[in-house]
C-alpha cells in the first residue's frame, strides 16, 4: 500500500518547509505575544491622528506651501496692486487690508482639510480606521488639530510680514491675539464644511471646483478689499449678510481696537452654527460611508 510512504513524504515536506523559513520562529512568537493594552480614550486617539498628520508634513513639506507661500504672495500682491488706487497709499491701505486678507487666506486654506480627507477615504486605510475599536470622530479631530497649527503658522507669517511692511495695529498685542483666536475658531468651524464635502465628493478635483466656486465670491463680495460704502446698495446688502464680512469686521476691529461685543458675538455665533450643522453631518456621512 502506498499510504505510509505518502504520509512520510508529506511529513518530510512539512519539515523542510519549517527549516526553509527562518522567520517562522519569530512569526510564531510575534503572534503569541500578548500585548498589554487598554482602550485608548478619545483624546489619546485624536492626538495619535494628529501625530500622523504631522509626520505627513515631514514627508511632504510641499503641503505647507498653502500656509506659507500663499499668504506672502497674497499680501504683497494686493497691497501693492490696489494700495495706491484704493487708499491713495500702500501703507494706508495695508492698515485696512491686512485683517481682511488674513481672513481670506486662512478661509481659503481651510479647504485643504477636505481634500486631505477625501484622499484618505478613497484609500484602504479608512477601512482600517473604521474597523478599529476607537472613538470615531478622533480621525477628524486629530486632522483638524493639525490644521489649526497650519492656520496659526499662516496667520503668524502674514502678520509678521505685515509688521515689516508697516502695518501698525492700534489694538496692540492683545488685540492681535484676540483677532487670531477669533480667526482660528472660525477656521476650525469652517473646516467641518469641507470635511462634509470631502465625504460627499467623488474626486479631489470635484471638491476643489466646488470649494473655489463657493469661496471665490464669498471672499471677494465682502469687506475684505474695499469699504462696502462705495458699493451699489443691492451689493451692500449682500456684503452685510456675508458671514465672511462679519468675521472680517470682528478681526479688523480687534486688531485696531474698536471691536464691539456684538462683532465678536457674530463671529462666535456663525462658528457655532456651522459646527452644529456640519460636524454631526460629517460624522453621519463617515459612519455610513460605503
Amino acid at each position: 500500500m502506498t499510504n505510509p510512504s505518502l504520509q512520510e513524504q508529506i511529513h518530510t515536506d512539512t519539515e523542510n518547509r519549517s527549516n526553509n523559513h527562518s522567520t517562522d520562529d519569530s512569526l510564531d512568537q510575534v503572534i503569541t505575544n500578548y500585548i498589554p493594552h487598554s482602550r485608548a480614550n478619545g483624546i489619546k486617539t485624536s492626538l495619535t491622528f494628529a501625530w500622523r498628520a504631522l509626520l505627513k508634513i515631514k514627508y511632504v513639506p510641499e503641503q505647507l506651501m498653502d500656509a506659507t507661500i500663499f499668504p506672502i504672495m497674497f499680501l504683497l500682491m494686493f497691497t501693492y496692486l490696489f494700495g495706491g488706487a484704493i487708499a491713495g497709499s500702500t501703507s494706508d491701505y495695508l492698515q485696512f487690508l491686512l485683517p481682511g486678507i488674513l481672513v481670506q487666506t486662512i478661509v481659503t486654506i481651510t479647504m485643504y482639510t477636505g481634500i486631505e480627507l477625501n484622499n484618505d477615504i478613497r484609500k484602504g486605510i479608512f477601512d482600517r480606521f473604521r474597523s478599529l475599536p476607537i472613538w470615531r470622530p478622533s480621525v477628524l479631530v486629530g486632522a483638524l488639530l493639525v490644521d489649526t497649527v497650519r492656520y496659526s503658522l499662516a496667520a503668524s507669517i502674514m502678520i509678521g510680514l505685515g509688521l515689516v511692511l508697516g502695518f501698525r495695529p492700534d489694538g496692540g498685542f492683545l488685540g492681535v491675539l484676540i483677532a487670531m483666536a477669533l480667526l482660528l475658531i472660525f477656521a476650525f468651524s469652517l473646516s467641518w464644511i469641507w470635511t462634509t464635502l470631502g465625504m460627499i465628493m467623488r474626486t479631489e478635483k470635484a471638491l476643489m471646483g466646488v470649494s473655489m466656486m463657493v469661496m471665490f465670491p464669498l471672499t471677494f463680495v465682502s469687506n475684505v478689499f474695499v469699504d462696502p460704502e462705495t458699493l451699489p446698495p443691492w451689493l451692500q446688502t449682500v456684503v452685510e449678510v456675508n458671514p465672511i464680512s462679519l468675521v472680517v469686521t470682528g478681526i479688523r476691529g480687534s486688531m485696531h481696537g474698536f471691536v464691539t461685543l456684538e462683532d465678536i458675538s457674530w463671529v462666535l455665533l456663525w462658528s457655532a452654527i456651522i459646527i452644529v450643522i456640519f460636524a454631526p453631518l460629517t460624522m453621519y456621512l463617515y459612519q455610513k460611508k460605503k
Binding site: I35, P36, H37, S38, R39, A40, K44, T45, T48, F49, W51, R52, L55, K56, Y59, V60, K123, G124, I125, D127, R128, S131, L132, P133, I134
Partner: peptide
C-alpha cells in the same frame, strides 16, 4: 476582529515602522 482590505490599508506616506507604531498607539499601547 481585524481587517486587511483589498487595497493597502496603511498610510503609504509613512514608513513601515511609523505605520505600526501608529496603529499600536491607537489600540492603546
Amino acid at each position: 476582529i481585524s481587517l486587511t482590505g483589498q487595497f493597502a490599508s496603511v498610510d503609504e506616506d509613512l514608513t513601515g515602522l511609523e505605520n505600526l507604531i501608529f496603529i499600536a498607539r491607537l489600540l492603546g499601547c
